[in-house]
């Protein structure tokens, strides 16, 4: 490798300072708080005490897996559909997809509540039509809906990019060699969009496992996700040590799942075998 010039090194300085200040330092703080007691002595108690939160961890993981899966189920066909439409249509779909992202999360969540609440917009319509009102806010479904609604553009975009890149001639070659339309999908499009699927899943799963606020509002106070727990430890109780310990464990969980996802996408580099 070529030795970096002085100029090249100088260019990297802002990045290094930035990383040190805003990435490394907070991590060190998390580590410090995790392994100290409020009085400042070294301890494992914070970590060992986390069994108390096992249920919340489980719910969070479960909910984010379900939400990610829902995002994939809705997102993949949509991404495929957009990738196959005309240039003009693509632009319109992209704007429609991004539009909610330009609105603040709080506003989005509040408007979702305004629509879904027991006395909300949806139920007023149902009542006006003489139909039975539905109870949505406060259920698990509402929270999952909220997460899916918020994060599914992050599923669509990378998958769209991956499908868009697939050479159309490969699809023709596949049908030439005997693939029905469904087989073209399973034998060529799916495997060739794997990298997009992996990043889509990562980009939805990671933020949704640590999400908070959505669950507080749409969960109607009956749900607590791990993100809410952390927020409460820091904000309300000022029990930094417990909060830090939970954060650390969650980071490790995320790292493990990222590593697993990466194994999947690595498979793409080495050309493999046709799936049956």
């Amino acid at each position: 490798m070529k030795k970096k010039s002085l100029g090249g090194a100088l260019v990297a300085v802002p990045h290094i300072v930035w990383s040190a200040l805003f990435i490394i330092a907070p991590l060190l703080f998390v580590l410090y708080y995790t392994f100290t007691s409020p009085e400042g002595g070294f301890t494992f108690d914070n970590i060992l005490g986390l069994t108390e939160y096992a249920d919340i961890f489980r719910t969070s993981i479960e909910m984010s897996i379900i939400a990610t899966f829902c995002c994939f189920l809705i997102g993949y066909p949509l991404a495929y559909f957009i990738a196959r439409s005309t240039e003009r249509q693509k632009k319109i779909f992209m704007i429609l997809l991004m539009l909610p992202m330009w609105t603040n999360l709080l506003i989005r969540t509040y408007s979702m509540m305004a629509i879904l609440d027991d006395g909300g917009f949806l139920n007023s319509i149902l009542l006006a039509l003489d139909l039975a009102p539905v109870h949505i806010v406060g259920t698990k479904g509402a929270v999952i809906f909220g997460i899916v609604y918020d994060f599914f553009p992050y599923m669509v975009l990378p998958i769209y990019t991956a499908i868009e890149k697939i050479d159309r001639r490969l699809l023709e070659a596949a049908s030439d060699l005997g693939c029905s339309n469904a087989q073209v999908m399973t034998q060529v499009i799916l495997p060739l969009s794997k990298s997009g699927i992996v990043s889509g899943i990562t980009m939805v799963f990671v933020p949704s496992i640590s999400t908070f606020y959505i669950s507080q509002k749409l969960g109607g106070g009956t749900f607590e996700l791990i993100g809410d727990t952390i927020e409460r430890q820091f904000q309300s109780y000022s029990t930094y040590n417990i909060g830090a310990a939970i954060s650390l464990v969650m980071m490790i969980l995320i790292l493990i799942s990222l590593a697993i996802m990466n194994r999947f996408s690595d498979g793409e580099e080495t050309a493999g075998r046709l799936k049956r």
């Binding site: 001639r169 023709e172 596949a174 030439d176 060699l177 029905s180 060529v188 495997p191 794997k194």
Partner: peptide, 23 residues
Amino acid sequence: AYRRNVNTVFQKYALFPHLNVFE
């Protein structure tokens, strides 16, 4: 196309990049 007893060698080959030579 997939039900025709006709196969094609495409202008730019169009080999499947996710499969090796054998596959």
